[in-house]
């Protein structure tokens, strides 16, 4: 049994300490957003946020995560109350199959928390660890820019952005 803090809640997890976080999220906590893509840290589909930074959950054994705050895409918002980054991806229709998208969104979210006004160059550099096979890159970039605007305006009191 190990205690993990996921999306603001403490979970007692019955998994071996060497289990990668990805399988705990999917198998034990029954969350969907983090995806298995390669298990090797090469594609980014499994990305979640740990203490504010983007992390490949497929190569992060849970023994590293004691007392750390884990956030998954589910922790940002819901289908009823989507977070700015989620509204931005919906507004830009930034998906085809969408399998890589939650990972992209989590790294973008971590970037925007650190740097609310990234340049296009910075977004591209930040997303370099992530692969998309459908070719929705242009839309992903637009969505991250839109999310940045929405979050900046939300900070200024405006809810920002529409669907």
């Amino acid at each position: 049994m190990m205690s993990l803090k996921i999306n603001g809640q403490d979970h007692q997890v019955d998994a071996e300490p060497d289990t990668p976080l990805l399988y705990v999220l999917r198998d034990d906590i029954k969350l969907n957003a983090a995806k298995y893509g390669c298990g090797l840290g090469q594609c980014g589909a499994c990305t979640v946020i740990v203490d504010g930074n983007a992390v490949f959950s497929c190569v992060t054994p849970i023994l590293l995560l004691k007392d750390k705050e884990i956030t998954t895409l589910e922790g940002l918002g819901t289908i009823e109350k989507p977070a700015p980054i989620q509204r931005a991806f919906m507004a830009e229709q930034s998906a085809q199959c969408g399998y890589c998208i939650p990972g992209m969104m989590m790294r973008a979210q971590a970037l925007l928390q650190r740097n609310p006004n990234p340049t296009d160059q910075q977004i591209r550099a930040e997303l370099a660890p992530h692969l998309c096979r459908c070719g929705t890159h242009m839309r992903i970039l637009r969505a991250v820019h839109r999310a940045a605007e929405m979050m900046t305006r939300a900070d200024a009191g405006d809810q920002g952005g529409t669907l």
Binding site: T72, I79, S94, G98, Y99
Partner: peptide
């Protein structure tokens, strides 16, 4: 798309 960007069950996976 909404389920896909909010962690809904969207895939056979």
């Amino acid at each position: 798309i909404p389920a896909k960007v909010t962690g809904g069950a969207a895939y056979v996976q």
